[in-house]
């Protein structure tokens, strides 16, 4: 049977991808960011997933205002890195897991969550930057990501985005779906985006360390209560783009009910406009 063994949480700032792709990762500014992921790279080498269920948001790349799915599950065999206007990131094509993705779609929809099924979808920095942070840059002679990835895109661009509670409950439905898949797969679920940041208007550049610290504490210890936090608290306290943090609740909801083991916790300000937060939680059996 498939099992979710761990969850990973990380910001997905586009400038992080640009720094890696342009060979700037050794600069002191970026070293402070990347040093927080050294332990993560070792951990994932020791605990390699077969499949990563990657919760992220598209930033007006795969989805324009033509179609705005609240939750879209990528069921294709492969997904190309998107050209976001600066040219596509020079990272490998993302290999999907159509069989598990289709199983999760069927299970979760029957569990009352009305997903959109995406069979053709480019993936932007929201998905590829977390892969780069956790796996590093794939070498030229073995240019591929080391596992399959199921992209799960959440609308956090046009308000209203799904509520924290809805995201947390969806995570639980995803866990039930994975648990009922009849192949012995080690699945990780990643929640990405955040932490506090605002990219628009005269309040751009907002950072709220206290909010972020409290969010990490509660995500670990009391996610069900955290999930009841209304949108306005994210917007007011963590910035208009801080609302991306609702996606972390999907990953947390997919963990089992025992207190998780905290493998790693990291926080740093800034990466470009954003507070970088990162957590790795393992399920206790």
């Amino acid at each position: 049977m498939a099992r979710i063994s761990a969850s990973v949480y990380t910001s997905h700032v586009p400038a992080i991808g640009a720094a890696l792709d342009q060979g700037k990762s050794g600069e002191p500014y970026w070293q402070k960011v990347f040093s927080g992921y050294e332990k993560s790279k070792q951990w994932i080498k020791a605990n390699p997933p077969d499949v990563v269920f990657l919760v992220y948001n598209d930033h007006a790349n795969a989805f324009s205002l033509d179609l705005i799915p609240t939750f879209a599950i990528g069921c294709a065999a492969e997904f190309q890195p998107a050209d976001e206007g600066w040219g596509p990131r020079p990272v490998p094509m993302v290999r999907g897991h159509p069989e598990l993705a289709a199983h999760i779609a069927q299970s979760v929809i029957q569990d009352d969550f009305d997903l959109t099924i995406a069979n053709k979808m480019d993936v932007d920095h929201g998905l590829t930057v977390p892969l780069s942070l956790m796996f590093g840059q794939p070498p030229a002679d073995d240019f591929r990501w080391p596992c399959a990835v199921i992209p799960f895109a959440v609308n956090v661009v046009q308000y209203p985005v799904p509520s924290g509670r809805r995201c947390y409950q969806l995570g639980r439905a995803i866990r039930r779906a994975v648990d009922s898949f009849d192949q012995p797969l080690n699945v990780q679920i990643w929640g990405t985006g955040g932490m506090s940041h605002q990219l628009q208007g005269p309040r751009a550049g907002l950072i709220n360390r206290e909010f972020d610290r409290d969010f990490l504490d509660r995500l670990i210890a009391d996610p069900a209560a955290l999930a009841s936090m209304p949108h306005i608290d994210y917007v007011r306290e963590a910035g208009s783009e801080g609302i991306e943090l609702v996606m972390w609740l999907i990953a947390r909801g997919a963990m089992n009910d025992k207190p998780p083991r905290v493998v790693h916790r990291f926080y740093h300000v800034p990466a470009s406009n954003t507070a970088v937060g990162h957590l790795i939680l393992e399920n206790q059996e």
């Binding site: 500014y29 550049g205 907002l206 306290e237 300000v269 406009n273």
Partner: peptide, 8 residues
Amino acid sequence: MINGGRSI
């Protein structure tokens, strides 16, 4: 930003 961003 380097100095911690805009205060809340």
